[in-house]
């Protein structure tokens, strides 16, 4: 018995296609191809370029999604001691780098200070981890009372300094800083963490002078 299941012989099936339909199958892709090639002189074949980050300047408000942030001065200092908070360099010859910033929560939910520190970036060589830690992590200190920044509730603004230990090897008097934005994810198919702001991409970059603390 030829052509049955598990057989290597296949039955040939003939399908009749109307002549008009065959013409349409050829004509439509051809038209699309011609139109695309015709647009080449006007940039039709150029790859889509990502939006470059905006210029980051002191005093300018940057919208990140869940909050607005404004950077101020960047200063370097030997140590920071306010009330019962004391921060010292992490290594011999090192210093502390403090970035002034103002943050306003623009959502309807409380904002974690961890999210604020995530939004500020710069060159890896400029900072080092705190003692006992593996990765560099900024300490966000409120200017008003010298305590670590707490949860920022909706509509509130906080003036703070973001403090990093700086290694002795970093001697530059300028630093490139980045501000990242966040993308809202309503549903995450891979986790049970819906309605989350995820770190997205750099929205603003700029060079800041590093000043000595008065």
């Amino acid at each position: 018995m030829a052509g049955g299941a598990f057989s290597s012989t296949r039955r040939r099936v003939s399908r009749t296609v109307p002549a008009g339909a065959r013409r349409g199958r050829v004509l439509l892709p051809s038209l699309i191809l011609v139109a695309t090639l015709a647009s080449a002189p006007f940039g039709g074949l150029r790859a889509t370029e990502a939006q470059p980050p905006a210029a980051l300047k002191a005093g300018e408000v940057i919208a990140t999604g869940p909050f607005d942030v404004t950077l101020g001065k960047v200063v370097t200092l030997d140590e920071l001691s306010v009330n019962d908070l004391a921060l010292s360099p992490a290594s011999p010859g090192g210093r502390l780098m403090a970035i002034e910033l103002t943050v306003t929560n623009t959502t309807d939910e409380p904002l974690s200070p961890l999210r604020i520190t995530d939004a500020i970036g710069g060159p890896r060589a400029a900072v080092e981890p705190w003692p006992g830690q593996d990765e560099p992590h900024g300490e966000l200190v409120a200017v008003a009372d010298g305590t670590r920044v707490r949860t920022v509730n909706p509509g509130l603004s906080v003036q703070a300094v973001l403090v990093y230990p700086q290694p002795a090897s970093w001697t530059a008097d300028r630093i490139d800083l980045d501000v990242y934005d966040f993308r809202f994810q309503e549903e995450d198919p891979l986790s049970l963490d819906p309605d989350t702001w995820l770190l997205h991409s750099v929205v603003a970059s700029g060079e800041f002078p590093i000043k000595e603390s008065a």
Binding site: D108, E109, P110, T147, R148, R150, N153, G155
Partner: peptide, 12 residues
Amino acid sequence: GEGRRYAADTGA
């Protein structure tokens, strides 16, 4: 009154 949520402060 408009449904915004304010969390208790962790550092106070």
